[in-house]
Simulated assay, not measured.
Amino acid sequence: MRTFLDVLQLLKKYDIYIHLGNRLWDIELAAIEIDNLYKAGLLENKKYAQIKLVLTHEHEMEERRQAKTAQE
């Protein structure tokens, strides 16, 4: 698990498709869905932690991108 796309591909294996039209919202919803899969016992601790790191990183990068775009 290295990218947001990898996370989305994993979610598709569980028939979870995310596209809200806003990348930040997509990342946030993916985080919620990953939490639900973990609580259901479908993800092991190591994989869950790795996915959460990817999502946190992507969220921070997207917030910076949107802030930069808003300043221009």
Score class of each variant (00 low, 15 high):
1 M>P: 07
1 M>L: 08
1 M>N: 05
1 M>F: 02
2 R>D: 13
2 R>H: 10
2 R>F: 10
3 T>V: 01
4 F>N: 03
5 L>T: 06
5 L>N: 12
5 L>D: 06
5 L>R: 15
5 L>A: 09
6 D>W: 02
6 D>A: 03
6 D>K: 00
6 D>L: 02
6 D>V: 01
7 V>T: 05
8 L>R: 04
8 L>H: 01
11 L>E: 01
11 L>H: 01
14 Y>C: 00
15 D>Y: 07
15 D>W: 05
15 D>G: 00
15 D>A: 07
17 Y>H: 11
19 H>V: 05
20 L>P: 03
20 L>F: 03
20 L>Y: 02
20 L>Q: 08
21 G>H: 04
21 G>W: 04
21 G>D: 01
22 N>A: 09
22 N>I: 11
23 R>T: 13
23 R>A: 09
23 R>W: 02
23 R>I: 08
23 R>V: 10
24 L>R: 14
26 D>Y: 02
26 D>S: 03
27 I>M: 03
29 L>E: 13
31 A>P: 05
31 A>Q: 15
31 A>G: 10
32 I>V: 13
32 I>K: 15
32 I>R: 14
37 L>R: 02
37 L>F: 05
37 L>C: 06
38 Y>C: 04
38 Y>A: 12
39 K>V: 08
39 K>D: 07
39 K>F: 08
39 K>M: 11
40 A>L: 15
41 G>V: 07
41 G>N: 05
43 L>Y: 06
43 L>D: 04
43 L>K: 06
46 K>R: 15
46 K>F: 07
47 K>C: 05
48 Y>V: 02
48 Y>L: 04
48 Y>N: 09
49 A>E: 12
49 A>M: 14
49 A>N: 08
50 Q>K: 12
50 Q>P: 01
51 I>M: 05
51 I>Y: 01
52 K>L: 09
53 L>Q: 14
54 V>A: 01
54 V>Y: 00
55 L>A: 04
56 T>I: 15
56 T>A: 15
56 T>M: 14
57 H>T: 12
57 H>I: 09
58 E>Q: 12
58 E>A: 10
59 H>Q: 15
59 H>M: 10
60 E>K: 14
60 E>Q: 14
63 E>C: 10
64 R>G: 07
65 R>N: 05
65 R>F: 13
65 R>T: 04
67 A>H: 11
67 A>K: 15
67 A>G: 03
67 A>Y: 09
68 K>L: 13
71 Q>K: 07
72 E>S: 11
72 E>W: 14
72 E>K: 15
